[in-house]
Amino acid sequence: MAMIEVKNVTKQFGDLTVLDNFSVDFDHSGVTVLIGPSGTGKSTLLRCINGLEKIDEGDILVDGLSVNNKKNLKQIRKTCGMVFQQTVIFPHMNVLDNLTMSPIKLLRMSKAEAEDKARYYLDKVGLASKEKSRHNELSGGEQQRIAIARALMMSPEALLLDEITSALDPEMTREVLNILVNLAKEGVCMLCVTHEMSFAKEVASRILFMEGGKLVCDVSKDDFFGSVREENERINKFLSFIGE
């Protein structure tokens, strides 16, 4: 059984159909990259998987649990950690407390254990020295790296990453992507919406191209940048447009 099964999902905002009878499965491993023009439902798909948006039709199962049942959301969100484009580091606590809050409150983890774990992940994202910092003392890139660490604190089976570098300048983008590349090499399963093709080329195992709420193609990385690009005029145009 696949970890995430998206079955015939339709999602509308008013008259706009963002996901149109959409179906896809995701496994426990590897890095899947979702690409496509803006406003084609990539972010919405991730938000629906995490239960942040209600779906109008169809069903999404995460480890067999449906997002349509509110009682499952807690477990689903534990399974899928999520980081956003506009991530916020909670301003009323320092970095360490940001990381330890959810395991302590939700998993009843002891404070000492949670702090050990937090330091481990802070070290992993290269910010061990920032544990006492506040959100306004951190750069955008540092905030995203902390958000990744915060999501990892719940030991999710997969990370949903929603354009997490789109609001960052190139240098910060690089430092965030480096972290993701390292995580990917360690075998963390990721589902990313991104426009960073270099990142996709480096670590993606599978690429989904979406347009108009539909899946245009679902292939391996090599096929995507090879044969698919050559054959599919639309994808070639898109990749040229974003400078690939």
Binding site: N50, L52, R77, K78, F84
Partner: peptide, 8 residues
């Protein structure tokens, strides 16, 4: 969003 995604 962030709080919900953390499971709260």
């Amino acid at each position: 969003d962030c709080a919900y995604a953390l499971g709260f």
